[in-house]
Simulated assay, not measured.
Amino acid sequence: MERLKIGVSACLFHPDPGRRAFASKTLHYLEQSVAHWIMAGGAMPVLIPSPTGDTARGDVTLADYAQWLDGVVMHGGADLWPGNYGEQPLRPEWAGDKLRDDYEIALLKAFVAAGKPAFGICRGLQLINVAFGGSLYQDISSQTASTLRHQDMQAYDRLFHGLHIEPQSRLSELLPQPGRVNSVHHQAIKALAQGFVVEARCPEGGIIEAIRHQGCARGGPWVAAVQWHPEFHKPEYGVIDDSALLTDFLSAAARQKT
């Protein structure tokens, strides 16, 4: 069978005079383990560049990628620009990356319009929620009652917490066993976007950990996302086996081809 082709949204390095390599250039990249996670399911990851910018040429659009590819993964990275959900940054370092937001929101909408599935990881979950009209806590520790640390840059992907999966959700079918997941974020969903349901929360503080569009089960948009990084999970970490997330997403991508 022909392998599925899965698009991956790009992280952006903007021009930075303090950077030693390509200091004046905009760089597009993805984290290696995201590509390897997709490849673990037998699919081919394809980095999707932004078609805009001061070096833009030609007439290739994000809609062209959405027609050619079978699905898209929105992956982790910088904070979102609060202006996209009607707020001002509470601190300068939480201003996010508006250029990446604009590119990824347009990318997500192109795939939804083409009837192709989209899966979000960490920032990807937050981006999906904002793109569909939801909002975020700019900082969990200062804006919520949660006392649990969700980000530790020293521990990074070795910081874990438990996971409560909502009964009767699709996620409860995919991940029937309780367990723990990694936590690499300081922002989180505040107001859930219309049309989505919560599929999992952190037991300590109730932070939303997984969402799914109601259209997934009704012939509408197939859009799902998790706040943790499944691509970072290794059995030796004592984490939940969430390999079924990838299988479910790729199965949706395969169905749209038939």
Rank of each mutant, 00 (worst) to 15 (best):
A224M: 06
I208G: 01
Q32V: 10
A35P: 01
D97P: 01
R57W: 02
K98Q: 12
G58W: 00
H233Q: 15
T61N: 05
W68D: 11
S183N: 03
K234G: 11
P203H: 14
L47F: 10
S24N: 07
Q154Y: 01
E204W: 07
P203D: 15
A244L: 05
T52S: 08
Q256K: 07
G96Y: 00
I38E: 07
D242V: 12
A253G: 11
Q154I: 09
A244E: 10
K25A: 13
A56S: 13
P17C: 09
S9W: 07
K109G: 04
L136S: 01
D139C: 06
E104N: 09
L175C: 08
R201Y: 10
W81E: 09
P221K: 05
F232C: 14
A254Y: 01
D16H: 10
D241W: 03
D97A: 06
R201C: 11
W222P: 00
A106W: 02
K25M: 11
K116N: 10
I189L: 12
I105N: 13
S169T: 14
Y85S: 08
H229S: 10
M74S: 14
P230Q: 10
S141N: 01
A252Q: 15
P117V: 11
Y85N: 03
T26E: 15
F13Y: 14
A224Q: 01
N182P: 02
H14Y: 08
M74R: 02
D248G: 09
D241T: 09
L148V: 07
F132K: 00
L4D: 06
E199S: 15
S172H: 07
A113N: 06
R57I: 08
A253R: 01
Q256W: 02
P89I: 00
W68R: 10
G83R: 00
P51N: 12
P49N: 13
H150P: 04
L192R: 01
H164W: 06
D70Q: 04
L99C: 05
W81I: 02
V226F: 06
Q32Y: 07
H14L: 15
G7Y: 11
L174G: 12
L163M: 07
G77Y: 08
G115S: 07
S24H: 03
C122W: 01
T258P: 04
A145R: 03
P167V: 08
V72G: 03
A113F: 03
E93M: 13
D16I: 07
I128R: 02
D59Q: 08
W37K: 02
H229W: 07
I211F: 05
A191P: 01
P235R: 11
C11Y: 00
S183Q: 03
G77Q: 01
A191D: 11
L80C: 05
W222L: 07
R57Q: 09
C216P: 02
K257P: 00
H28Q: 12
I207L: 15
L90F: 01
V181T: 12
G76M: 04
H186A: 10
V181L: 11
